[in-house]
Design a protein around this nucleic acid. Sequence first.
DNA 1: AAAGGCTTGCAATGGTATTGCATTTTAAGC
DNA 2: GCTTAAAATGCAATACCATTGCAAGCCTTT
Lengths: 139, 139
Amino acid sequence: MTNEALEQRLLKHQIKPTAMRMLVLNHLNKTSAAISLKALYDDFYPADRITLYRTLKIFEEKGLVHSIDDGSGAPKFALCEAACDVKEHNDSHIHFHCEKCNKTYCLQKFDIPDIHLPKRFIQKEVNLLVNGICDQCAA
Amino acid sequence: MTNEALEQRLLKHQIKPTAMRMLVLNHLNKTSAAISLKALYDDFYPADRITLYRTLKIFEEKGLVHSIDDGSGAPKFALCEAACDVKEHNDSHIHFHCEKCNKTYCLQKFDIPDIHLPKRFIQKEVNLLVNGICDQCAA
DNA sequence: AAAGGCTTGCAATGGTATTGCATTTTAAGC
DNA sequence: GCTTAAAATGCAATACCATTGCAAGCCTTT
């Protein structure tokens, strides 16, 4: 992804494109798995941890990434689908956590099936986390 | 639930029935919503927090309760279905978190629908968390 | 060049999970 | 019942992660 493309993507989400933010966005864009703050920190060492924290925070707030809680203790982050924006997240896909390699993937193509709830329960948002073994590790 | 019944239930799960454990089990049994360690601590004050922590821990390990991560930051705990035991958890139901009252319920009667995964992904365990408004709060 | 606003970096705080260890309680054998 | 071993409890301490406060730096606008 070119610098211009990165910049455009940030601007589209009303995020001021700083160097740090473009680096982080580029990094997120390159990897297929979701990434934790700690992992991001390791990859960007010796960049400041708090800055990375706030970078992810604002990305999330502006609908550029969504956070995934895969039960590993710390949330992980992954780029949103194109449909997401500042006003609304729309990440209705399955999240898969591999218990072998510990990676967490957004299965963008795999929608969450319809849910049946008891009478008078109102559904707003659904999180579906599947634990198991990913294709790489199953090989 | 009688003391004998509580005791039997603990023994069935290979948990030594101490006073504390029976109290906690009774408490879990009385409430329909899942409970966090902190809330349990508040309810049992001035009992020791660590003891309660370890009580929940062993309950979980022995298949008497399961933990639910509803995104509130701290896991909550609820009694397992009767089918669970020391060897295997089997809590394949929807968890519902009400954003109004912040309570989290096990919808025992509402099974998780079948999931479609990409080729060669192996599914082991599924967590389905629905956020929304519960029947009480919707009224 | 000056001023204001946003970003960054460092320090500090806060909450929760977890472990170590000494003491108490429980269960078992005699 | 008494003794002893194992398990549970209570307290202190540690560790981890998220989050905030504040001062310094950067960038834009005038």
